[in-house]
Design a protein around this nucleic acid. Structure first.
Length: 558
RNA sequence: UGUCCGAUGGUGUAACUGGCAACACAACUGAUUCUGGAUCAGUAGAGUCUAGGUUCGACCCCUAGUCGGACAACCA
């Protein structure tokens, strides 16, 4: 069994196995290192599942570390949401919660080591000057006039940077590497900048903050990380990552890069998600149309489905765009097994059973989940006046229409077979207002006659017993793929789907009253829904998680 | 006119490290069903970016191209 699994290792596992075999490392210790500057999205979920999954698979450990080296972008709100989301996904960092800001003192000492070695210096150039003298990818940069300051001068200046003597932007600490390096990141990168800003954890203790490159590898090293897994854009940073470790003389983790997740019709940039929230294109980070973990959660996704999705998409180094239909498959697969069925009518038309006694009410027995016997049954009231879905009736049926039509028969789920006799239309609009039918008393579910073949089965709700509810029909937020391509300034407005959120008032069978926020169910033939957090007694609110298979694309094709 | 990385069906990921390209999603067909769902059975779809080379044999190794991505924040 173990050997069979060994056949389909991903490239990261191959590297790890190789390292373990060669004794480069003797254990596996990974970390998930988000910057607390926004909410986590499905792309982070891939990384979380990867890192924590590897930790578990190799009987190792995984840390949660906040990469909080830029106080102007980071907030406690984000820290809290990230911890909540990681936990919700089902992962546990146990007692290994860290912050890069925990290492500010240590990092400062590392910088001093470099200064003493002559491989770091204080530079007085402005950001613009540094940028100009860095050159371009194809042209080498120019050396800073401050590059050859003495160790003593650098030590003195760096200490004074720390004490707050200099204004923001007036000086930086840079590594002294190679201004002609073909790798831009090796052209005397900035290690520390002056930022008189309040940090969400260290407050005003520091006014100089390390850059990502100077903090990340060292943080990995301090924590004893063996495999530091990050996304592809950090590939060109790896020489620098290794350079700092070597130059300071630290234990060396191995950085491995993988391709980040792209989902069709979905924006996965934190910056743009933030913009969507700030400019009210959506109603917050947990808007169910958002690809954020909290959005998916509110939408009705389960942690299991997301973990399974991450597992299914795999991990590699080539750019990829995963089709939404795979994510949808994963959630349907999970919800199909776990969610109870319930009857709801979103777009009602009244059906009157002319031969059904005026005041009679029957309790029809319904199976809660045909996929799971243990979920039991429930009673649903049935009476003379019902609602069915308007689309489930067609006066003149087309050849492939299996549902109710004039003169035709259809089965009401868990009820009777009915036959349509006539329809009444609104004289003004011409719209059908009532469908008059007769029911066949011998065809009640369970009775011998009920086995009679009829072409279709409809879901229904008793008009006088139904509960009304607000149902939010979430669709994809974007109608075009790769909205990232749009020009600056209107990144995604052009692609926004005006129908991404439709709200209808639906009629639902009375058992809906018992549901609590967060509960997931399948509206018979309509899709998977969950009870929204906005639900309060007397006002039910449902979110559509996902439609049943294919109906989006089918309706698109029409 | 640079450095680094990548290239396998419509989409993703595999291929025992050189042995006749597999799995999942999507698509299609049929069976079944009191959900046009689910389930079950089946079909189609790539010869692995190109051109050379090594080899009995190449998705895998070598050479040269082509195409795509990343890199020029005091962001991460």
């Amino acid at each position: 069994m173990e050997e069979e699994k060994a056949k389909s290792l991903n490239f990261i596992e191959e590297i790890i196995n190789e390292d373990l075999k060669n004794g480069v490392y003797h254990k596996v210790h990974t970390r998930f290192p988000p910057e607390p500057n926004g909410y986590l999205h499905i792309g982070h979920a891939k990384s979380i599942c990867l890192n924590f999954g590897l930790g578990k698979k190799y009987n190792g450990q995984t840390n949660l570390r906040f990469d909080d080296t830029n106080p102007v972008k980071e907030e406690t709100e984000y820290v809290d949401s990230i911890m909540e989301d990681v936990r919700w996904l089902g992962f546990d960092w146990e007692d290994r919660l860290y912050y890069a800001s925990d290492y500010f003192g240590q990092l400062y000492d590392y910088a001093v080591i470099l200064i003493k070695k002559g491989t770091a210096y204080v530079c007085d150039m402005s950001a613009e000057e540094i940028s100009e003298t860095r050159g371009t990818p194809t042209r080498p940069g120019k050396e800073s006039p401050f590059r050859n300051r003495t160790v003593e001068a650098n030590l003195n200046l760096f200490a004074r940077m720390k004490t707050g003597e200099f204004p923001d932007g007036s000086k930086v600490l840079r590594a002294r590497i190679d201004m002609a390096s073909p790798n831009m990141h090796m052209r005397d990168p900035v290690l520390y900048r002056i930022l008189h800003a309040n940090h969400h954890r260290t407050g005003d203790e520091w006014c100089i903050y390390p850059m990502y490159d100077f903090a990340h590898g060292q943080s990995d090293s301090i924590e004893g990380i063996t495999h530091s897994i990050c996304t592809l854009e950090f590939e060109v940073h790896r020489p620098l990552y290794d350079w700092f470790i070597r130059e300071i003389g630290l234990y060396a983790p191995r950085q491995i890069e993988f391709a980040r997740l792209n989902l069709s019709y979905t924006i996965m940039s934190k910056r743009k998600l933030l913009q969507m929230v700030r400019e009210n294109f959506v109603n917050g980070w947990d808007d169910p149309r958002m690809p954020t973990i909290c959005g998916l959660r509110r939408r009705g996704y389960t942690p299991e489905s997301i973990r399974n999705f991450a597992e299914t998409i795999g991990v590699a180094k080539r750019d990829n765009v995963i089709d939404m239909s795979l994510l949808e498959f994963c959630i349907r697969e999970d919800l199909n097994k776990r969610s109870n069925r319930i009857m709801a009518v979103l777009n009602p038309v009244k059906v009157i059973l002319d031969n059904y006694p005026e005041d009679q009410v029957e309790e029809m027995e319904c199976i809660n989940n045909p996929e799971d016997e243990t979920k039991g049954k429930r009673k649903v009231p049935f009476s003379r006046e019902l609602y069915i879905e308007r689309e489930d009736f067609m006066e003149i049926p087309s050849k492939k229409f299996f549902r109710l039509s004039e003169g035709g028969e259809v089965r009401l789920k868990a009820g009777y077979i009915i036959k349509c006799n006539r329809v009444i239309k609104d004289p003004g609009t011409g719209e059908i207002s009532e469908i008059h039918c007769t029911y066949d008393p011998l065809t009640k579910t369970g009775m011998p006659e009920s086995n009679r073949k009829v072409k279709g089965t409809l879901h229904w709700v008793s008009a006088k017993h139904a509960v009304t509810a607000e149902v939010r029909l979430y669709d994809r937020l974007f109608i075009k793929e790769n909205p990232d391509d749009t020009e600056e300034g209107k990144e995604f407005t052009a692609y926004l789907n005006p129908d991404s959120l439709k709200t209808v008032t639906a009629f639902i069978e009375p058992s809906a009253k018992e549901l609590a926020p967060g509960e997931k169910l399948q509206f018979e033939r309509l899709g998977y829904f969950c009870v929204d957090k906005d639900t309060i007694p007397g006002k039910m609110v449902f979110n559509r998680t996902v439609t049943l298979k294919d109906s989006w694309t089918k309706s698109e094709k029409k």
